[in-house]
Computed example of a mutant assay.
Amino acid sequence: MITASAALNSLLLTSDQLVVVDCYDITLQDGTVIRWTSADAPVAVDIAGVRTLFSVGPLITRNNIKLVIGVQVDSLTLTLTADDAVTIGSVPLIKAAVSGRLDGATVRLYRAYAADWTSGWVGVLTRFAGTVADVSGGRSQLEIKVNNHLQLLNTQQPVRSYQAGCTWTLYDTSCAASKHTSIGTVVSVAQRWEFQTSIDSGATNLGTSMLPISLGVVLQGGQLKFTSGKNSGFTYPVKTWSGSTATLLRPAGLEIAVGDSFQVTWGCNKTIQVCDFVYANKANYGGFPFIPAAETAVPV
Score class of each variant (00 low, 15 high):
160 R>P: 01
138 G>F: 10
263 Q>D: 11
291 I>H: 14
23 C>Y: 06
92 P>W: 12
237 P>A: 04
97 A>T: 07
219 L>K: 03
172 D>P: 00
41 A>Q: 11
239 K>I: 03
50 V>W: 00
203 A>Y: 06
83 D>Y: 10
122 V>I: 15
34 I>T: 04
82 A>S: 14
111 R>I: 08
230 K>I: 12
217 V>C: 01
127 R>C: 15
43 V>K: 00
128 F>T: 10
134 D>C: 06
160 R>L: 13
101 R>E: 15
234 F>Y: 15
20 V>A: 11
299 P>H: 11
168 W>M: 03
211 L>I: 11
93 L>K: 12
89 G>R: 00
177 A>M: 01
141 Q>L: 01
254 L>W: 06
240 T>K: 02
132 V>F: 06
280 A>I: 00
112 A>Y: 07
85 A>L: 10
186 V>W: 01
65 I>Q: 10
141 Q>N: 14
214 S>L: 08
210 M>P: 08
249 L>K: 07
195 F>G: 05
274 V>C: 14
249 L>W: 09
291 I>T: 15
57 G>E: 13
162 Y>K: 14
77 T>I: 14
175 C>E: 04
161 S>C: 04
62 R>L: 08
166 C>E: 06
63 N>Y: 11
117 W>T: 15
188 S>F: 01
239 K>V: 01
73 V>H: 12
246 A>S: 11
190 A>R: 07
289 P>W: 10
91 V>F: 03
6 A>H: 09
113 Y>G: 04
279 Y>P: 00
208 T>C: 03
157 Q>T: 13
104 G>A: 05
110 Y>G: 05
148 N>A: 04
86 V>R: 09
162 Y>G: 09
17 Q>I: 12
12 L>P: 02
272 I>D: 14
274 V>D: 14
101 R>G: 08
55 S>F: 06
194 E>W: 02
110 Y>K: 01
256 I>T: 03
143 E>D: 12
5 S>K: 07
236 Y>R: 05
85 A>P: 00
153 L>Y: 08
12 L>R: 13
274 V>S: 13
213 I>C: 03
185 T>L: 01
121 W>N: 06
198 S>F: 13
21 V>D: 07
294 A>E: 12
193 W>T: 09
89 G>F: 06
89 G>H: 02
202 G>A: 14
210 M>E: 02
167 T>A: 12
187 V>D: 12
238 V>T: 04
286 G>T: 09
115 A>T: 13
218 V>E: 02
141 Q>R: 12
120 G>V: 07
31 G>N: 02
55 S>A: 15
165 G>M: 04
292 P>D: 14
8 L>K: 06
183 I>S: 09
13 L>E: 15
18 L>P: 07
28 L>F: 05
257 A>R: 11
18 L>W: 05
110 Y>F: 15
54 F>P: 03
153 L>F: 11
45 V>I: 06
281 N>Y: 06
39 A>T: 03
90 S>R: 09
160 R>G: 12
190 A>N: 11
122 V>C: 07
298 V>A: 10
168 W>S: 05
193 W>Y: 15
168 W>F: 11
79 T>Y: 02
150 L>V: 09
243 G>I: 03
60 I>N: 04
184 G>S: 02
65 I>C: 07
248 L>E: 08
244 S>D: 13
81 T>Q: 12
43 V>N: 00
207 G>R: 02
231 N>K: 02
21 V>Y: 08
37 T>L: 01
234 F>H: 08
177 A>G: 00
76 L>K: 02
98 V>G: 09
